[in-house]
C-alpha cells in the first residue's frame, strides 16, 4: 500500500475551499476508488456522483490536476503523486456540492434540437435501405456517454460562459449524428449558425482531447458541420447556384 495526498474541492454553490486528505491506495486503484475510500474513512459528507465505475455512464466527470477526466478511468499510477492530486468539480457548470455539478442545462439544450425526421419508407413493408458505411459514419457519434467533459473543457463555456448562445461540442456531435444520417430530412444548418452558435468554436480540439470515448469531435463532427454552414451562408458561388436552380 502506498500513500497519496488529495486536494479536493469542498463547498456548495461555488463557495468552498480545497481540503487535503492523505490515504493509502493499492495497485490497480483508480481515482474514484480513492475518493470513495476518503469518503468512507475521512469525509462521510463528501458529495460525489458516480454509477458504473466502467467509463460508460459518464457520471463521475471531474477535473483531475486541472484536466477534465472520468475519475473511474484515471488510474492512480497515471498520476504524479509527489504533490497532492487536485480534484475539482467541472467548472463549466454550476456547483451543487463538493464534486457534484448541475449539468441540467445540457438536457435543456438537447430538447431544443430538432428531432430525427426520416424520409418516407423505401419499401412497402415500411422499412428503409441504407448503406452500412453511411450508418458507420454516424455510429461514431453515438458512442457519446454524455459525460460532458467536452463541454467542460470548451473555453467558450468554461471561460466565457456563453451558455445562452453556444450549445457546445456535445451537441454538435449530436446534431452531426442527425444531420449526416442517411434517412434524416430535417434541416438544422440555419439554427446551427445562429442559435446554436457554431461560429464560436475556434477549433482548439480540446473537446477531442478529453473525450473518454475517443470520438473525433472536431474533425468528424464540428468541422463538417462548419463546412455545411459555409455551404449555406458563406459560399457566394453556392448561393448563386441555388438561385439559378430555383
Amino acid at each position: 500500500m502506498a500513500l497519496a495526498t488529495f486536494s479536493i474541492w469542498r463547498g456548495e454553490a461555488g463557495q468552498g475551499k480545497y481540503c487535503k486528505y492523505t490515504t493509502e491506495f493499492s495497485e490497480g486503484m483508480v481515482v474514484l476508488d480513492v475518493i470513495h475510500k476518503i469518503q468512507a474513512e475521512q469525509a462521510n459528507d463528501m458529495a460525489v456522483r458516480w454509477n458504473c465505475k466502467a467509463g460508460k455512464c459518464g457520471s463521475c466527470s471531474a477535473e483531475i490536476n486541472g484536466m477534465p477526466k472520468l475519475m473511474c478511468m484515471t488510474r492512480m499510477n497515471q498520476l504524479d503523486l509527489s504533490k497532492p492530486v487536485t480534484i475539482e468539480p467541472m467548472k463549466a457548470f454550476p456547483s451543487i456540492k463538493d464534486l457534484v455539478t448541475d449539468v441540467s442545462w445540457n438536457f435543456r439544450v438537447k430538447k431544443q434540437i430538432k428531432k430525427f425526421k426520416p424520409r418516407p419508407p423505401d419499401a412497402p413493408d415500411g422499412s428503409w435501405r441504407m448503406s452500412q458505411e453511411d450508418v458507420d459514419r454516424v455510429q461514431e457519434f453515438r458512442k457519446c456517454i454524455e459525460c460532458f467533459l467536452c463541454q467542460d473543457v470548451c473555453h467558450v463555456l468554461r471561460e466565457h460562459q456563453l451558455h445562452d448562445e453556444f450549445v457546445g461540442p456535445r451537441y454538435f456531435v449530436y446534431i452531426a449524428a442527425l444531420e449526416m444520417h442517411p434517412l434524416d430530412t430535417e434541416d438544422r444548418i440555419s439554427e446551427l449558425a445562429k442559435a446554436k452558435g457554431i461560429g464560436y468554436c475556434n477549433i482548439t480540439k480540446c473537446c477531442t482531447k478529453v473525450c473518454p470515448e475517443s470520438i473525433t469531435i472536431t474533425d468528424n463532427a464540428i468541422i463538417p458541420l462548419k463546412e455545411r454552414v459555409v455551404d449555406e451562408f458563406y459560399d457566394p458561388l453556392k448561393r448563386l447556384f441555388r438561385m439559378f436552380r430555383r
Binding site: W9, G11, A13, G14, G16, E88, P89, M90, K91, A92, F93, P94, S95, T101, W105, E159, Q161, H163, D164
Partner: peptide
C-alpha cells in the same frame, strides 16, 4: 445561465 462554478474564473 447563471454560473456558479466551483472556483471562480
Amino acid at each position: 445561465m447563471a454560473q456558479a462554478a466551483a472556483s471562480s474564473k
